[in-house]
Design a protein around this nucleic acid. Sequence first.
DNA 1: CGGCACTTTGAGTGTTATCAAAATCTGTGG
DNA 2: CCACAGATTTTGATAACACTCAAAGTGCCG
Lengths: 249, 249
Amino acid sequence: MDKQHYLERLVLKLETHVPLPPAEREKLLQLPLTLKRLEANHDIVREGELTQQCCLVAEGLVCRYKIVGDGARQILSLHLPGDIPDIHSLLIERMDHCLGTLTPAVVGLIPHEAVRSLTRASYRVSEAFWRETLIEASIYREWMVGIGRRAAPSRIAHLLCEFITKMTAIGLSDGVICNLPLTQPEIADALGLSTVHMNKKLREIREARLVRIRVNRLTVLDWKGLCSLAEFDPDYLHLQPGAAKIKDD
Amino acid sequence: MDKQHYLERLVLKLETHVPLPPAEREKLLQLPLTLKRLEANHDIVREGELTQQCCLVAEGLVCRYKIVGDGARQILSLHLPGDIPDIHSLLIERMDHCLGTLTPAVVGLIPHEAVRSLTRASYRVSEAFWRETLIEASIYREWMVGIGRRAAPSRIAHLLCEFITKMTAIGLSDGVICNLPLTQPEIADALGLSTVHMNKKLREIREARLVRIRVNRLTVLDWKGLCSLAEFDPDYLHLQPGAAKIKDD
DNA sequence: CGGCACTTTGAGTGTTATCAAAATCTGTGG
DNA sequence: CCACAGATTTTGATAACACTCAAAGTGCCG
């Protein structure tokens, strides 16, 4: 429950592209954080709510999703520690989707006022947050391409590539093995597939010896092969140049 | 070719949520604009390019798209006059997608420097642009839900609802009739469908007397029915409250 | 009037969804 | 350590949806 540590992850992320002056970094590290421990599958904010605070993911995996008329769920994004998935609520108070945990998680609530006083005082801070939201939009675009124009196996491979790349970028994976705390229905909901179909195509990917998956543990056996199936090019993640390039064995 | 007029559309959009102080509005209206007349199906910026300027859509219809390995295109967003679809290039220079015209168009190129000096000088301007990018992200999310979880007829209806709503919001439609300068292959590429399938389902929508479509002209015959098929709720567009609510006949 | 792009149609195929049930795994308590 | 409940994964069969290919029809523009 180390607030400082959680905020450091945030600052690290914000400084990926442009370093911040020490004074501003310091103020970010002193943001007031109310930590909350949450169970898996717990909604953090729901569609339609008006918010006065945003939430830093401190531990666990958080997702953004919408439910359509017939009850189907579309997962729109996944959020790892260091993310503030609802930073947009600073400028658009009304939530047009839900935010919820996929695993047990710890989130830190930060009043809008506290963030706003920093972004308004410094264009560097403001641009750093803005840039993060732009990168998220870039990821949306890539997902849209996948859901709209790629076949199921490619989509699945793409999600695996993206996930381990992001985990590696924040130091939670070595690029070969990582924790994958997603159930198959959850992966299916992120990819716009049915659970059953997902399962069958994922099996094929495993049988092709591209990855091994056991008990929440993903092991990449053939990174090049996986990337090639996925047509994965990490540019859209806009990570620090070279930072998270995963090398093949 | 009235630069002032084009910039006014931009400012109008930026002020939808929070008015700008007169001084800042004035500076925006004096942004340097290099007008360019473009043919239909002309790329404005391509994936991989580094840009030093952004482009205001002055006239015509512009789209954002990506091409996947097998040559299929996914259209990611549509941009009407008043939009700056690549405003994100202020903070992320490298384009991770293409921007191109769908109709003959006029765009106004604005050097990054000119915009940056305004956003850095005023958090109100900065927040206005930031908010626009957040609204665009919200639209991405809605499209993702459609492509991932809605059946073809619903997706098509949704695109029609969104398009006429946006056209109405900028005064280019009365909410019943509007120009729809999209070919069926283009609509299909925006919805992740094949042209043929699109055509057949669109025909069903017309036969259900929800809309009439002839020669680039869309007429809504049954707005409620169309919205209901689409599950269209305009909240995600974050338009001025009440501004673009289209009433049923 | 012809050429070109776009739309429409039909037939056949392939992918993905749905439904239902079995198998496997996970964690807990005895 | 074993038994068991609950969740997750896997499987098979069938149906629905969407895609491809190919060709004909339509409308626009020069």
